[in-house]
Write a protein that binds this DNA or RNA. Sequence first.
DNA 1: TATTAAATGAGAATAATTTTCAATTAATCC
DNA 2: GGATTAATTGAAAATTATTCTCATTTAATA
Lengths: 148, 148
Amino acid sequence: MTKDFECMQESYAKEVLREKGLKSTTQRLAVVHILHMSEKLLSIGEIHGGVKDMLGNTGLATIYRTLEMFEDLGIVKRLHFPDGGHGYAFSQGEHVHHMVCVDCRGVFDFSECPAENFDYASVEKQGFRVKDHFIQLFGQCGKCVEAA
Amino acid sequence: MTKDFECMQESYAKEVLREKGLKSTTQRLAVVHILHMSEKLLSIGEIHGGVKDMLGNTGLATIYRTLEMFEDLGIVKRLHFPDGGHGYAFSQGEHVHHMVCVDCRGVFDFSECPAENFDYASVEKQGFRVKDHFIQLFGQCGKCVEAA
DNA sequence: TATTAAATGAGAATAATTTTCAATTAATCC
DNA sequence: GGATTAATTGAAAATTATTCTCATTTAATA
């Protein structure tokens, strides 16, 4: 039975976890919730803070473990900032890319893949086999453009 | 006067440094040398080790400072591994992208931009202004394909 | 060669991440 | 619903990564 207020992301995560024989713990679902609620990239510390607000004390190690696992499962994506830092965003499995606002760290995702029509044959000449790609756009979001 | 054995990368780096009023120190040039010689992504530790082999003792902080600066100058690029780690590759200023072999961590660069013909207008609907992009390909290099 | 601002080294300080292990909990089976 | 069990967690220590400080050194310039 599904709780009324359970969001799609939450049930999606549960499903993925169940398929892999992993447990849907309160902590893991809280991480999904926090990420899904956020309009910007969150650092480990911010996620930890958010989870603690929801559940009371929660070990930081759990957050690390959860995020690593979620990344492997394709539930979250780790994105990067120009300054070398990084943050996490919810990412629902399918092929999705992200734009990051360098001013407010807002994340915006889009499904059109910039490299969709690229002919990898041209870069595969020396025998390299492309298996995956990572694409992230940088720029300013609408609000920050106006504010500037 | 240019030393006979000075490589292009080294003189390129010197030029960029001079333009910005920064010093071409032995340590900085050693970092360029190490990176340029390497066929794979190097970690901070590996770069530090390489520089120490060339120059004798060298502070780790200098390596950090140098790499951060080089990244800002567009001389090196910080790339990422699926496992969350990262490494540095020489990157000569112009628009270049990298492929990383997930087996041997080899780096291969190419100049055709996969996103070259992408129409950013489609993702800029909500007012986001794309300023830059980060693209990195993952796969297996020829050697590792054969070895597998 | 003397001058000077920039850069370095050493190590302390801080931050980030991983590990360990006993206690807890979600899923499963009756 | 309660017992069972393997997975998961929390807490703290251990490890690793990064930054900072400041006295000393060095590259560029005149």
